[in-house]
């Protein structure tokens, strides 16, 4: 059964890879102007783009200084690209979750039909999630400011309070993300409306909190660790080393693919936690042991 559980997310891999391909293509298109500016600015120097990574950051800062205005626009373009990806992300999510309904199915038409049919509630759940996360951030800030105004004068305490409020806010965000994924699964697999899906997600979290957050935490912490490694391995080996750029690209893209698989693994695991609704609409609280 363990082997079956581990492979449970495999049917969703093609959809996740499609999403990865879209992201990769979009990222390369979006960053091309920035890279082109760097190329042209440093082309004359013997070390060309390596100058960007020379310790001291003289040429790195020069590129930013000379082209700061352009980079500002390009960063806005990146942000706009991310916004445009939100609806595509919802579609991909729907396809991924739909593929979990019957892991043995290979019927692309059926999966697409289910995903498209449930797109609206998935979108609403996603939107509510964004709102909830924003609300929790604001609430965390308000509470911190309130407590701070009552505290005696002590810098370190104030800073620790800020750190504490950030951690509490992060925990609230984690809860919200878990709930969102569980609700998305319920909207597609059990064809529930938004309110029912959220209620079911809440029920699941209350029923098996340690298992659910353990499963989520293991995968998210692994993803964060991998993302950090991808960011820092050039620093660890010396950013000016002769390690070919292709190595950078391969390592970083492998990390992104593994992170995508971890995400699929979580969604599959989350689906297994979610009690299925019977034909009559009552909640089947029996969770199969694995």
């Amino acid at each position: 059964m363990i082997a079956v559980y581990r492979l449970r997310w495999l049917p969703a891999v093609p959809y996740a890879m499609a999403g990865y391909a879209i992201r990769l293509a979009l990222a390369f298109v979006l960053i091309h102007p920035i890279a082109s500016v760097v190329e042209r600015t440093l082309a004359g120097w013997p070390a060309n783009e390596h100058m960007m990574f020379h310790s001291g950051s003289l040429l790195f800062s020069e590129v930013l200084r000379l082209h700061g205005v352009a980079f500002h626009g390009l960063l806005e373009q990146l942000a706009l690209g991310a916004l445009l990806m939100i609806p595509i992300g919802i579609v991909i999510h729907a396809f991924v979750i739909a593929s979990f309904v019957d892991p043995d199915t290979r019927d692309l038409k059926a999966i697409a039909s289910l995903a498209i049919a449930r797109m609206l509630p998935v979108a609403v759940v996603s939107l509510l999630s964004l709102l909830a996360i924003s609300g929790m951030m604001i609430l965390s800030w308000v509470i911190r400011e309130g407590v701070r105004s009552m505290l005696p004068f002590d810098t370190r305490t104030n800073d620790m309070l800020s750190l504490g409020s950030i951690l509490v806010g992060a925990l609230a965000v984690v809860v919200s993300l878990v709930m969102t994924d569980l609700a998305r699964i319920a909207t597609i697999r059990d064809k529930l409306g938004v309110a029912e899906a959220i209620a079911l997600a809440l029920h699941s979290v209350r029923k098996r909190p340690f298992e659910i957050f353990g499963a989520f935490g293991a995968r998210v912490s692994a993803s964060i660790f991998l993302a950090m490694v991808g960011l820092t391995f050039p620093l660890m080996f010396g950013i000016e080393t002769s390690i070919p750029a292709s190595c950078w690209i391969i390592v970083q893209q492998v990390i992104v693919v593994v992170m995508s698989c971890l995400r699929l693994s979580w969604l599959a695991r989350a689906a297994s936690f979610q009690p299925r609704l019977s034909q009559q609409g009552s909640i089947d609280l029996e969770i199969p042991m694995r």
Binding site: F28, I31, H32, I34, A35, S36, V38, E39, L42, N48, E49, H50, M52, F53, P234, A245, S246, W248, I249, Q252
Partner: peptide, 8 residues
């Protein structure tokens, strides 16, 4: 600028 492209 492949390193730059890779990183960004």
């Amino acid at each position: 600028a492949w390193r730059t492209r890779s990183y960004i």
